[in-house]
Write a protein that binds this DNA or RNA. Structure first.
Lengths: 299, 299
DNA sequence: TTTCAATCATACGTTTTTGTATAGTCGCTG
DNA sequence: CAGCGACTATACAAAAACGTATGATTGAAA
């Protein structure tokens, strides 16, 4: 068993849930995908899917293997990106993939990246939005914007500045429920917070707030959705001040008692930091983010 | 360009240095490998090798891509291993790969692993000897024996105990060059140490010894070769006390002033620690290593 | 209940990929 | 300087992989 191609079909079936759908995704045909799965099961000596007329359901074994198949996929994508930097000429060019949180990527990075794209027309930019911290390790991205200091070896990190956070609520909510007098009084309010993904909670663990899941009466894992929920008057929630200030109907809550800020880090792989395309984007991000964070801090 | 198989040929050519040799390694033929390289170069749009009558030399680009291809390879190997744990039955079985340093793996682990293999006949053991610390991240191994506390997320680590180190020299060397009176006097002696790989230096950075490369008059990166050099009378070198005590001709040097010990950690992936095969090996290692470290400490 | 839109499985012809055989080039050695 | 051993490149045949077409089964909607 040593045919790497079979795993592409494996991933496709796992994601689409059927041979036919996987065939559509990969550009192959249903019999081919079926043969691939057969061959893979025979080669590994395990059952990967339970066949049924309405699709294929992955077995436990298949679920355990998916991380490795995805690692192969990520490595392949990284290889293709790295090939675009070839020669590393004076004029930087190629594809650079950036990983960031939803909020940072959507609201902060986009204008900065627009500027970088303007200055370096030969650089293609990719933006991966999620809150995982292992993007660089898996080479899922070339540059990461993170809110925690990276701990791994082999990474080069630069601290850019601080991002101020605060509690906010919509004017309408405040009119109906009032403002809490102190932190304890928050318990009587509707709080918007995370569902399962407690990355934001871990990040602010050093804070004065006792953040736990049962505190929240509205739960979503998407930071952007949390912000939208607050803007919709669903309750009090934590968000970046820059986002809140963009909406005149949002009022700060306990601003004097809850003043929180996250460190902002720019991270690259040690062995990639001298690629001209990556360096150009890194420097652009450092400059753009630095300026943006300064204007935020001075407000 | 999305044929994962081409990268296997790419790796083979890179390692063997010629199409023909790569063909022999992979079990394919020289024309096939040649076509694969052609196709890969065309697909990526870069030159990977400079052809010559006595082989293919990798370009700079090719060297930059090798890490990603190797990541794919490692992920594939990990997938195949993980498939052997299927079902996760009561009786643990499958292939478990352990990463350790040369010294630990060669001299300490082997008897312990023999014991584990005896108790679990359905477990196949693999032992990868190197001093890299990213084995687990790349999933190059399932369990790692390390001398430093792992810092990464997603890993579970257990501290097993301490490994005592010391300076030693061969009786013959001492007869010729004498024993140093204090640490400063080491400068007048022949010292056996690392060449380029300063992992051991970093590990003992907190020590009293000012370890730098120019201190050494004999340099090898292999810890085992260092120990052999000391046993051959080449000079004074640092080694595990357990190894030194196995040779009656070795005498401790500055034992009262240089007493060093490394922490010994057992590390496993969070999402794999409940696989019965891995758990069996992990527990066996913890028990065996723990006992061994205790007898070492009591000497 | 019947029909329809999915699905997976199988048979067969075609395309693509691979292997075999051979020619040609370079460097090394006697 | 000739011969040998290593390599790459090319031409053609064999084998493997793939796609098309079709049948069979299921589940949901009419």
């Amino acid at each position: 068993m040593n045919d790497w191609t079979l795993l592409r079909s494996f991933l496709a079936v796992l994601r689409r849930g059927s041979l036919s759908a996987a065939a559509r995704e990969t550009g192959l045909t249903q019999p081919t995908i079926g043969r691939h799965i057969d061959e893979l099961e025979a080669g590994l000596g395990v059952a990967l899917f339970t066949r049924s007329p309405n699709g294929l359901a992955p077995t436990e074994t298949a679920s355990a293997l998916v991380v490795h198949a995805e690692a192969m996929e990520a490595a392949f994508a990284a290889l293709k990106r790295a090939a675009t930097w070839s020669g590393d000429v004076v004029q930087p060019r190629g594809t650079v993939r950036i990983s960031a949180s939803e909020v940072m990527g959507t609201f902060v990075l986009t204008p900065i990246l627009a500027d970088i794209a303007e200055r370096h027309r030969d650089i293609i930019l990719e933006l991966a939005l999620n809150n995982r911290t292992d993007d660089l390790l898996r080479r899922d991205a070339d540059i990461a914007v993170r809110m925690t200091r990276p701990k791994q070896n082999g990474l080069v990190a630069r601290r850019i500045g601080h991002v101020p956070l605060g509690l906010f609520a919509h004017r309408r909510y405040v009119a109906a429920a009032g403002l809490p007098a102190d932190i304890e009084a928050l318990r009587g309010h509707r709080i918007v917070g995370f569902d399962r993904d407690d990355h934001s909670a871990r990040m602010v663990a050093q804070s004065v707030l006792p953040i736990k899941r049962d505190l929240f009466s509205f739960r979503v894992d998407s930071d952007v959705a949390q912000a939208m929920a607050v803007r919709a008057g669903l309750g009090i929630g934590m968000m970046q001040k820059s986002m809140a200030q963009a909406d005149p109907d949002l009022v700060p809550v306990l601003a004097d008692q809850v003043a929180l800020q996250l460190e902002c880090w720019l991270v690259v792989h040690e062995d990639q930091k001298d690629q001209s395309a990556i360096r150009a984007v890194f420097d652009g991000l450092a400059e753009g983010l630095g300026g943006w964070l300064e204007t935020m801090a001075s407000r």
